[in-house]
Amino acid sequence: MPLIDVKNIGKTYYNDRVETHALRDVSFEINEGEFVAIMGPSGSGKSTLLHILGFLDRHTNGKYRFDGKTIDDYSKEEIAHVRNKKMGFVFQSFNLLARTTVLENVKLPLLYSDVKKSMRDEIALKAIESVGLSHRISHESSQLSGGEKQRVAIARALVNKPNVIFADEPTGNLDSKSGKMVMEFIQKLNEEEGHTIILITHETYTAEHAQRIIRVLDGNIESDTKVNHRHRARDHFEK
């Protein structure tokens, strides 16, 4: 059974009786452990797709099964729980809590889960270690560089050991060096920890870190191809 099973989904917005089709007819499957990039220019519907996949938004047509279940199978509480335990999010603009330490930021998803208070620090510290920021734990998020912020966000996405990590333009606000470093960690998560990664980007270069690229244009899937020559972030980094 695929982790993500999308069949003919569409999303239509109604604004002042004007219909806007953000997504028209999209179908694909993503299996556990895959690293998939969803590519497309701005306005193509890729962000809408990510929101639907991440249970942040509801589609208007078709069927979307996550881990065998649709969003309608869950109550509001359960949706929050699925987001908390099974999904991790990394955003373009980091979305860390201001005036809050790295440790507290990474611990945030644990607050909303059933993890015991005494365990939280340990789990969060491990996640911070895995993105190489152990020396920064008591810094406030505003004192970090962009790359560091995004690595904190990755640690936060990891902390509940989700089935899938959604990364929405994670390198969009970063310089190329920080961007490569972030991509390195994302790739490492996929290869070493076996996390399923769904990456949204409009850059071909970034997308080519994935195993597979789904191209979206005007709310439809343009192509769904395997990446033959994957970029290895670590290679670039080592050069």
């Binding site: 991440g54 987001r83 999010f89 979305n95």
Partner: peptide, 16 residues
């Protein structure tokens, strides 16, 4: 609003 959205994305329920 952003903070609230973030908390919800990370698993906060309406009740939380």
């Amino acid at each position: 609003t952003r903070e609230i959205g973030l908390r919800k994305a990370l698993g906060a329920t309406e009740k939380d």
